[in-house]
Design a protein around this nucleic acid. Sequence first.
DNA 1: GCTGTTATCAGCCCGGCGCTCTAGCGCCG
Length: 574
Amino acid sequence: MKNYLVSYIFSNIADMLEIKGENFFKIRAYRKAARAISNLPEDVEALVETSSLAGIEGIGKALEEKIKEIVNTGTCEYYERLKEEVPAALVEMLKVPGLGAKKIRTIYERLNITTIEELEQAAKQHRLRGLPGIGVKTEQGILKGIAMLKGTMGKMLLPTAIFLAEEIISMLKSHPAVEKVEVAGDLRRRQDLIEELEIVVSSKVPEEAIAGLLSYPRIKEVRERNNDTLKVLLDLGIEANFHVVEPETFWPSVHFLTGNEEHRKKLQEIARGKGYDLRRDCIVQKENGEILYPESEEKIYEMLGMPYIIPELREDRGEIEAGMAGRLPRSIEIGDIKGDLHVHSNWSDGMNTIEEIALRARDRGYEYIAITDHSKSLKIARGLDEERLFEQIELIKKLNEKIEGIRILCGIEVDILSNDLLDFDDDVLERLDIVIASIHSGFNQDREKLTRRVLNAIYNPYVNVIAHPTGRILTKREPYDIDIDAVLEAAAETNTVLEINSTPDRLDLNDRLARKAKEKGVKIVINTDAHELEGLNDMKYGVWVARRAWLEKEDVINTRALPHLMEMLRQKRK
DNA sequence: GCTGTTATCAGCCCGGCGCTCTAGCGCCG
């Protein structure tokens, strides 16, 4: 499956062209193609073989040729040439908020700065201010941006981590020296950002298993190698650690490497109290020195006198105490979700028709789907004005008569404007089944102003949901400065629901805030915010956040059957 | 770069905000 590689190279090309100041539409073509390839349900290699790339919208002759080249050789000449021309760190600088291609070019040309470290030094020494278009504030903003970037550098979003882990696992499963293989670490606990991949492999012939691992084509550099471990750097700049263990030590090892460390330490304390020593690869009965190899993680928890704790909860946030007391949550599952309440169609910036979305939702087994396009102020997203919204409502009525087995709800993602108002008046919002409100502008306003904007939306009787409530974009943008406690209190008071947005780089609310919301009595909705059909598959990411947040089915409104859901939505208006 | 179209080319997503050479540019959603 080379879809990821093609998409990675194309978006890199787009970044480099941007730095070079190339034609905007050419850059957009590469970005669009990168997205199209990464969203393909089928394998790009198969499409190359059957010469069916031309059927994909946004892929013309030139890009088709490049895709073929990448599939066959792992790269393309154009990309390699660009890499020689544009220093890699300049591309990295695009990730610094407030720093765009023009300013990067100026900094490069005037000061010959080619690394993030040099950029940071120059900013600290006040050498950036004074360059054309850069003053004190921009310089300070760059320093702040670098600090954020450093915190997430080398970390990957869940889809990347999962893609790589699945690729590795499927390769290893067919290797004769490998018995079992399982992912551990942060990824198994479904953290929002993953620093390193931890893969546990069981084998009776570890040297052969290691040799098999070394044939993984993505390995760029071997950083550490001994009899049973291999630490490598992969071609996407990501570190992976392989742990080869004896078959009987497999599950204790998976448990140990899943962590997290605090969870493990606390379990160790409990184990000691029960006469056990919890080791990296086994459990030792201290009294007689007997070595035990539990055959599953369930057995490990059972020996310690508690029910199984799912990896998502293993953070030492009270799960062990809850387990001992028999008060662990009955964690929500993906199968509990009965519909998606935040989806964009091609009426605004989505890719698909409402009918296509409804049919796909039905295929997923949903009972309902809400179409929530952007409102008029969000011009770039072709936000709907009143007239188009009313037309959309009429269309949805007709589609509901035509399509069996799924109910389409009329909704809107109404902008919370910079001036505190909503983008539509109440008499418009009143006509909708569901109203989602969110901020798309003025992120840098002060805490008081931002909080007031959200509170105004919450106190509006027609606003059911606040979407992506903190506005963070993982690896790109910090959450905006908002008094989240005030937001939670107002939401609880008014029966306003807060969203866990499942887009992998949002995951907003995050696990901690979603748990806090539950504790305050705020209901949650898990939505994808999908802009294309494949985006509906992102629901799992939001469910993982909810599981990490200790949420149960009852805490989440889109686990309800349609009549109950509608009743909950209408409750706000009373 | 692609698409639609048939011309070997035109059109392709806009507009607010914040910053800086304070009128216009760059960044962003």
